[in-house]
């Protein structure tokens, strides 16, 4: 297990839990990162506010890789602008491309996401596109230079779990990049299930932010993700289509 690294754009990670930083107190970030064992944390880019002197960067432990997202972008052009601004802040070249036109379900625009991925990969970014799980789009993202593919499990912030399970499985089976399940994972059992399926990592935010005890839930997710990963590597036992198979020796006993 010690050699089981997650590799994204040539960078190695031991943790397979990507932590969001939205919708909770900055003061909880350090505990969340620690209890999640996270090595990557997502951030958003917004108009700066001079009134609030607190900056999220002061709350993120050193050594954690920052993954700015392009939330708020409605098309590829806006996503590219946001990514460039994020990189200009001098915190690395990772970017999670996130483009939405639909404000009710917050579903990603796959076509614009492919365009933005191609431009940003060409500019040297490590591009991690958030997408609706579609095999053809995932293949286009690979061609466009993505470093990972991030299919949604269910709508952002819904905590509804693996609604797109079968389609994520297709990506895991067919795409030769880390498949990181993003959005909608609501509990550790769902994270564990995605990892058992062969997902490379899990990204979660709302499941933690809306939990009763955020750091404790971060720890529970960590254990779920680690268990699922181990089960995947071990290889799951087969499922019978019908009948039964005894676990005990079938030799006669207490009878003639």
């Amino acid at each position: 297990m010690n050699n089981d690294k997650l590799i994204i754009g040539g960078h190695e990670f031991n943790s397979r839990f990507i932590l969001g930083s939205g919708k909770y107190s900055l003061k909880l970030i350090e505990a969340a990162v620690k209890d999640a064992g996270a090595e990557i944390i997502t951030l958003a880019v917004r108009r700066a506010n001079t009134k609030e002197q607190e900056n999220i960067l002061d709350y993120i432990p050193k050594g954690v890789t920052l993954l700015p997202n392009t939330s708020g972008a409605r098309d590829a052009k806006e996503a590219v602008r946001i990514a460039r601004l994020a990189r200009e802040m001098g915190c690395g070249n990772f970017v999670k491309v996130e483009i939405m036109r639909d404000m009710k379900y917050l579903l990603p625009d796959n076509q614009e996401t492919i365009k933005a991925t191609e431009i940003l990969a060409g500019e040297g970014f490590v591009v991690m596109p958030y997408m609706y799980p579609d095999l053809n789009v995932a293949r286009d993202l690979v061609s466009a230079g993505a470093a990972a593919v991030m299919p949604l499990a269910s709508p952002i912030g819904s905590n509804k779990g693996l609604a797109t399970k079968d389609f994520i499985q297709i990506l895991v089976d067919e795409i030769d990049l880390p498949i990181i399940v993003d959005a909608g994972i609501g509990k550790p059992s769902q994270a564990c299930e995605a990892m058992e399926m062969g997902a490379a990592a899990i990204m979660a935010n709302t499941a933690l932010a809306t939990a009763g005890d955020l750091p404790m839930m971060a720890s529970a997710f960590r254990q779920g993700i680690e268990a699922g990963r181990k089960a995947y590597l071990a290889g799951l036992g087969r499922v019978l289509t019908r009948g039964a198979s005894a676990s005990d020796p079938l030799t006669g006993f207490l009878r003639d």
């Binding site: 969001g20 951030l43 958003a44 880019v45 108009r47 700066a48 900056n55 999220i56 920052l66 959005a183």
Partner: peptide, 10 residues
């Protein structure tokens, strides 16, 4: 002109 900074996000 746009002046931006990082905030919490997923």
């Amino acid at each position: 002109v746009e002046v931006v900074s990082f905030v919490g996000g997923g």
